[in-house]
Write a protein that binds this DNA or RNA. Structure first.
Length: 620
RNA sequence: GCCGCAUUCGUCUAGUGGCCUAGGACACCGCCCUCUCAAGGCGGAGAUCACCGGUUCGAAUCCGGUAUGCGGUACCA
């Protein structure tokens, strides 16, 4: 099945439910879908996209943008290609060793298998988010690492929705997750439909609640082989068991009350308790595996809590079970996930074996932490990707930052585009200890990447933020357009840690009435009289410059001369003018600001400022 | 409680037995640049490599133990 051309998608599809740029009104829909459309063209690597970008009408946002299908490099993504020799050669020393079905990163044995050829492998990774909350930073990071690994190895990246927790899953969260990943440029080769994008991939459906039949069949198999059984214990019984175990200082575990019922007993229980759960038998012994990040790990199954419930009494399957069934049937070769699943891995391995499936390789990523070093949580940190988008972080920075949380290149480089990451990513360089999500570093990266955006790109991405900041302001003028913003880009690009900083930097250009704080108007070393004097003189000089030569180079010399002849510090004079024109003490360079404002409005505001300081001078 | 994993500047990290009197980046401080704010340049401070033993001529790097932290221990994912 080949749904590949569907990449990109119609930007007008309302993909985001609460996503990007929440808070914009009216015009927001265009901007949001525009951002999504941008993301759809492929992640980062801005230089690759400058061309096509200019072809599109960048100056008028409220138009429908035709998004080209993303062109996938070489041979079509999703094609299950052989590993490049380089990919195999770069397999980490913490290599991947397993028997059975050959393909996989090789730890040396593959190269020496005597066949004369490199072991063939098909890397298949997946991210399996649960739509029980908005897209979480940690999920995005895990998705990124899976994608990077898949791309680096020439493999396939799959997205699967784990929505078996029906009580907590919602369509809104699902949309938030899918659109958020898409916005980040984390696009999947196989996965569910999103908006008008069709589902794609040969192993669908990619939504677990649509795969119930497959779980049912798997359960049948386990039951028939006596690897699972019905359990009729009541919640009360189980709670009592747990309580007494706790009292005795024992770890809680299912005691196996229903593990060995006779056929008659089962029939009887079924009659009085028609809704049993199904438990998977956990055999005695140790389960060991080689984690690609942590090395050899081994856990005794007695620590697993007893036979595992895999199907609820209402018949819906549980996570540990579905994840294994799906990973097996979808041919997942590498399970890359958070460290919080490390302890669960033995259960999964047992399940894979019971299912008669190949056990994938595992790589457990370190956790992203709150500042207090606990697992990153909504309570203590900003975890929703949508919130970062709303604050004006750009995907290049988010991706760069996320990649550096737990992975390092081994060089002194700090800035990595998506393509750089794909090229250099290696699981063996993944850190083992958890990493605190450092906002200041993200801010710095964001500034770095904003500075690297083309003018047009910066306008496209920041205009929605500018407009949003002006929506609430009193203004008779219409909101600024891309045309209005474009010439300002050189003045602001170095001053934007985040896109939402655009408003405060240039809003005065689009406001009809400034409200100026009088105390700001008078420079520190000056008094009101001096300020009025200075503003009056400055107005005279600026007016004399004339409208036709209203340029920064023309304005600066005479005003400096004025300061000199009057014995004023140029900085003080400029500050007084600055506040008079903008109402702010921190602005783009003054003379450029005057030019942007224009001759007439500059004089008007100078007059207005004098009025504020001394209404009596209004006649002058 | 039990099981597992982790532990290098405040933070992200480099480091895989001698190149480490531990390197880079963010943040911080100072200087320079400068009309403000930024950006940029230069410099500084900041880590007895959790602790204790061991192996070795030599350990941040290998081994053992301890401590601390985190994670898991559901009819959540």
């Amino acid at each position: 099945m080949d749904a590949r051309p569907a990449r990109g998608g119609d930007p007008d599809v309302p993909l985001i439910v609460r996503g990007a740029l929440r808070g914009l009104r009216g015009h927001a829909a265009h901007d949001v879908s525009r951002q999504l459309a941008d993301a759809g063209r492929g992640p980062l690597a801005a230089h690759d996209h400058d061309g096509p970008r200019r072809d599109r009408d960048a100056r008028r946002l409220p138009v429908r943008i035709g998004v080209q299908p993303r062109v996938q490099a070489a041979g079509g993504h999703g094609a299950q290609r052989l590993a490049t020799p380089g990919g195999v050669a770069s397999a980490p020393s913490r290599g991947w060793s397993r028997k059975g079905r050959g393909p996989g990163p090789v730890d040396g044995s593959g190269q020496a298998d005597g066949s004369g050829t490199l072991a063939r492998m098909t890397v298949r990774c997946r991210i399996a988010p649960s739509p029980t909350g908005p897209l979480h930073i940690g999920t995005a990071r895990t998705a990124l690492f899976n994608l990077l690994f898949a791309r680096h190895e020439g493999g396939t990246f799959i997205l699967r929705l784990e929505d078996t927790d029906v009580a907590r899953s919602t369509a809104a969260y699902e949309a938030d997750i899918l659109s958020g990943l898409h916005w980040l440029g984390i696009d999947w080769d196989e996965g569910p439909a999103m908006g008008e994008l069709a589902e794609r991939g040969p192993f669908g459906p990619y939504r677990q609640m649509a795969r119930l039949e497959s779980y049912r069949a798997a359960v049948e198999g386990l039951l028939s082989r006596d690897q699972a059984y019905e359990c009729f214990c009541s919640t009360e019984q189980l709670a009592a068991d747990r309580a007494s175990q706790e009292a005795a200082g024992q770890p809680p575990r299912y005691i196996g009350r229903c593990a060995h019922l006779t056929a008659e007993q089962r029939a009887q229980r079924r009659a009085e308790h028609p809704a049993p759960v199904i438990r998977f038998r956990i055999p005695a012994g140790r389960v060991g595996f080689h984690d690609l990040v942590r090395g050899d790990v081994s856990i005794d199954t007695s620590a697993l809590g007893g036979d595992l419930v895999i199907v609820r009494s209402d018949g819906t399957p549980l996570y540990h079970f579905t994840v294994c069934v799906d990973d097996a049937t979808m041919g997942i070769s590498h399970v890359i996930r958070g460290e919080d699943h490390l302890s669960n891995t033995p259960k999964h391995i047992l399940l894979f074996r019971a299912l008669g499936a190949e056990v994938p390789a595992f790589a457990h990523l370190p956790l992203i932490l709150n500042p207090d070093r606990t697992k990153m949580s909504k309570r203590k940190s900003q975890t929703a990707v949508a919130d970062y988008i709303d604050q004006g972080y750009i995907r290049e920075a988010l991706i760069n930052h996320l990649a550096l949380l737990g992975w390092s290149s081994g060089t002194d480089d700090e800035l990595f585009s998506f393509d750089d990451l794909v090229e250099r990513f290696d699981l063996s360089r993944v850190q083992q200890g958890g990493a605190i999500f450092d906002r200041e570093r993200l801010d710095w990266l964001n500034g770095q990447w904003i500075r690297r955006l083309s003018d047009v790109e910066l306008v496209e991405r920041s205009l929605p933020f500018l407009r949003a900041s002006l929506v609430d302001a009193e203004t008779d003028s219409s909101l600024p357009t891309a045309d209005d913003l474009l010439p300002l880009v050189p003045l602001v690009r170095e001053r934007l840690p985040r896109l939402d900083a655009m408003g405060p930097l240039v809003d005065f250009l689009f406001l009809d009435h400034l409200s100026i704080e009088p105390t700001l108007l008078v420079p520190k070393r000056w008094d009101a009289a001096t300020t009025i004097d200075a503003l009056t003189e400055a107005r005279r000089i600026i007016a004399a410059t004339g409208e036709t030569v209203f340029e920064a180079e023309e304005l600066e010399p005479p005003l400096r001369a004025l300061a000199e002849t009057r014995g004023w510090k140029a900085g003080d004079l400029f500050m007084a003018i600055r506040v008079a024109l903008t109402g702010r003490t921190a602005t783009p360079p003054l003379f450029d600001t005057m030019v942007a404002l224009g001759y007439a409005r500059t004089l008007e505001r100078l007059d207005g400022a004098r009025l504020i300081l001394d209404p009596a001078t209004s006649g002058t």
